[in-house]
């Protein structure tokens, strides 16, 4: 926020950083194995069109994962993101229906603002109402979705209601990379730098790893928590607008169930549910890994009914593997320090 680089942390940072690297290296390796393995069986998997689809599928989830990561770092959780995506997608669509000539950037600004407001509701409940984040956001998951149902009331936004330029944004590309993917990469990069190098960003880690120490260090916990939730909401709101651009058709159920995919991606990517640990790079790779696994199953013609079971098993395997890897790394690090 202030632009001042964070002071170097405790000496533990050294083995800590190594541990993080282990997590991400193992993830990237897993990603390569799955991708190349699938491609070996069906080379079409690595064709340009199929990769483009893959990245487009992952982009929106990866975007929401950015916000969720910030929340998880603070040792909170945001279950309401899926409902924020849905409400933002439908309302920004309605905006285009009401004002067909609306300039495109305004739709994005609208999504961001709406999301920030909804996220602030969560932030208020958690930071000032002292409601545990799981409870607060489970509640707002219901409430925001209910509001969406009430607003939509059987309606639907169709691609024909939307300006072609807006839909073109989703399908368009620069140098072969879809706009949607580029935008998400930019957001990830920006937040990656913010979380890694700026005081404001480091505060999320501090909050999650030791809240009491964070208070003693002079961090305004309430304000930081509030900003975190507002950011997560704003990102989910933006994701809603992109969802609309990508899918064109939006009804009241848009985005339902997204929250579990997002949390799964972050956790697979090494973001700890116990706060304070994880990077956006890892979370992004986690989202990509889940996306690749999903489409690999389809490409390999896994029977439809097995897909969900296999995905669940893979998710568990990823979490367990990650835990074992980090544990052995921690043990090694501890041994190294002792000698």
């Amino acid at each position: 926020m202030t632009g001042r680089a964070a002071p170097t942390l405790a000496p533990s940072q050294n083995w800590f950083a190594r541990l993080l690297r282990v997590r991400e290296v193992s993830l990237v390796a897993l990603l390569l194995i799955v991708t190349l393995g699938t491609a070996a069986i069906n080379p079409l998997f690595l064709s340009f069109g199929s990769l483009k689809d893959l990245f487009l599928n992952v982009a929106i989830i990866a975007l929401v994962v950015v916000g969720e990561t910030i929340i998880l770092l603070m040792k909170h959780v945001d279950l309401s993101v899926s409902s924020v995506v849905g409400l933002s997608a439908f309302l920004s669509g309605s905006l285009f229906v009401a004002f067909p000539g609306l300039p495109l950037p305004l739709a994005f600004v609208f999504g961001l603002l709406l999301g920030a407001v909804l996220g602030s509701v969560n932030g208020l409940l958690v930071a000032y109402g002292k409601v545990p984040a799981l409870v607060a956001t489970l509640g707002t998951l219901y409430v925001f979705r209910g509001v969406t149902y009430a607003v939509v009331h059987g309606g639907q936004i169709n691609a024909s209601n939307l300006p072609p330029a807006f839909l073109g944004f989703a399908t368009g590309s620069v140098l072969g990379i879809p706009n949607l993917v580029l935008l998400v990469l930019v957001v990830m990069l920006g937040f990656g730098i913010y979380l890694g190098n700026y005081r404001g960003g480091r505060e999320y880690y501090a909050l999650g790893s030791n809240a009491e120490a964070a208070v003693l260090a002079g961090i305004n916990v309430k304000r930081r928590t509030m900003i975190g939730f507002a950011l997560s909401g704003a990102i989910a709101g933006l994701a809603g607008v992109l969802y609309l651009a990508r899918f064109g058709t939006v009804d009241a159920t848009a985005g339902t169930g997204l929250e579990l995919q997002v949390i799964a991606a972050a956790v697979v990517g090494g973001v700890s549910i116990n706060g304070g640990v994880g990077t956006l790079f890892g979370a992004g790779v986690g989202a990509l890994l889940l996306g690749v696994m999903g489409s690999a199953l389809v490409t390999l013609r896994a029977p439809g009914f097995y897909q969900q079971a296999i995905q669940g098993a893979l998710l568990l395997a990823a979490i367990s593997f990650d835990m074992l890897a980090s544990r052995s790394a921690a043990r090694r690090a501890a041994k190294g320090r002792q000698s």
């Binding site: 579990l260 949390i263 956790v267 009914f305 097995y306 296999i310 669940g312 998710l315 568990l316 979490i319």
Partner: peptide, 16 residues
């Protein structure tokens, strides 16, 4: 995290 995973796994097994 575990039960988010088994949420998918067990439902998937039900379909299997």
């Amino acid at each position: 995290a575990v039960t988010i995973g088994t949420l998918a796994l067990y439902r998937g097994l039900a379909y299997v």
